[in-house]
Structure formats: C-alpha cells, structure tokens
Amino acid sequence: MKRAILLLLALTIAGFSHEPIFGLGPGTIFKGGVGIEAEYVREGDFRGIATEVLYGLTEDVSLTLRALQGFERFRGGAFRVKVRVWKDYERGRVDALSFIGGMTTDAVGGTSYFLGGVAVGRESRRWYFFADVRTADRFYADTAVGIRPWLTEYLKPDLVLLSELNYEQKGNKRFLFLSPAFFFTYRNLAVKGGVQIPASGADAERYALSVEVHF
C-alpha cells in the first residue's frame, strides 16, 4: 500500500524549474523549449528514478511525459498538460495561475487515474509563493514559500531555499508533511532536492533529488 502511495505521488509531482519540489507551481517552459529531468525518489525501502520530458507547445502550454522506474521494476507513467491561463508581470516578478490535467498509470496495480488541479504562484527576484490543489487517486493541497538569499545575476550560480507544507487525503487517511527544499541553477542546468518530513499521518520521510536541463 505504501509503495502504491509513493508511486502515485512520484508520478504526480514533477515540478518545473523554480517550483516546489513536492507541490506544483504555475510555471511553463518557453515556446519550443525542451526540458529533461532525472529524479531520484526514495521512501522507506523504495528506490527509483523518475525521468521526465517537458515541451513548451506555446509559452503558456507545457506538455510533460513522466516515467517512474523502480530499482526492481517499472512502476508507471504519467502525461500532463499545464495551461497558464493568467499572468501578470512587472520588473523582476511574475504572478500566474495554471490549470493542470492529465493521466497517470500504475503499472504495478494496473490502474489509471485522471489528474486535475490548479496552481497559483508568484516568482520574484527575492521571494517565491506557491499554492496548488490537485486530485488523482487522492486529494493534494500544497503551499510553499521560497527565498533567494543572494540576488545573483544571470550566468552566476543561483540558489533558492524553499519550505513547503504538503497535505494529502485519501478516504479517511490524511497525511501532512513539512518539506524543506532547494533549487540550485546555473544557466540552463538545475539541481533540485527536498525531504518530506511527516508531521501527521505518515511514518516515513520521502526524499527527492533531481537534475533538470533545458534546451
């Protein structure tokens, strides 16, 4: 059961660049842009690698294919569309709201779920704020705040620290995690990671560490 929970989580998360590690943000990749991500996922005795390919159909519509390969066997795949329906810009800041839809397949259990959700966020030079709600096999709600301690310029290494609060509910089971995370980028290369520390309802930490490159 725990593995099934992790599988769906690992297939459902998959943030993009400067977004929460375990939640989702409204960000989309540039038109014609391609992103490739490899993520190491761990919970309890499960170990796996999630790989993801992202494509910018337009600057407001991103398509994502994701697969989760356990160290023992293939675990499943997911397809997502993210559509940014609102955005507001000023110097060094963008606010946005996106809808997310798609499908995830559990190769072990042989079941599929529709994904649906909405994400809103603010990205600025100093601060990041995100919130999202999603449904798949369960209900997810996430919030995140991030800070860039050093306002480094373009072509310099860039670090953002995040603190997330992740809530999950399936039937009567409820899970709450407090999740410190980071993303470090250098030009078109990003390294992201975080740990979900159980605050309620779960007894094992979840870890994620990923490398993402944009072309």
């Binding site: 660049s17 540039f30 110097r91 060094g92 480094t152 310029e153 373009y154 072509l155 860039d158 078109n188």
Partner: peptide, 28 residues
C-alpha cells in the same frame, strides 16, 4: 518584465541568439 530567475531567462537568451545578426546578448 518578468525576469525573476536565471534558469527562466535562458529561454530568452537562446531565442535572441537565434536572430540573424545578433552578436551579443546581456541580461541583467
């Protein structure tokens, strides 16, 4: 407007550098 992070700005640099005749792109 909207230039919040270097990772996102990469797409702008890439597209501008594809323009014919562009010799240099500097982003602040």
């Amino acid at each position: 407007d909207g230039l919040a992070c270097a990772f996102c700005a990469y797409g702008l640099e890439k597209k501008l550098k594809k323009l014919k005749g562009v010799k240099r792109v500097e982003i602040s």
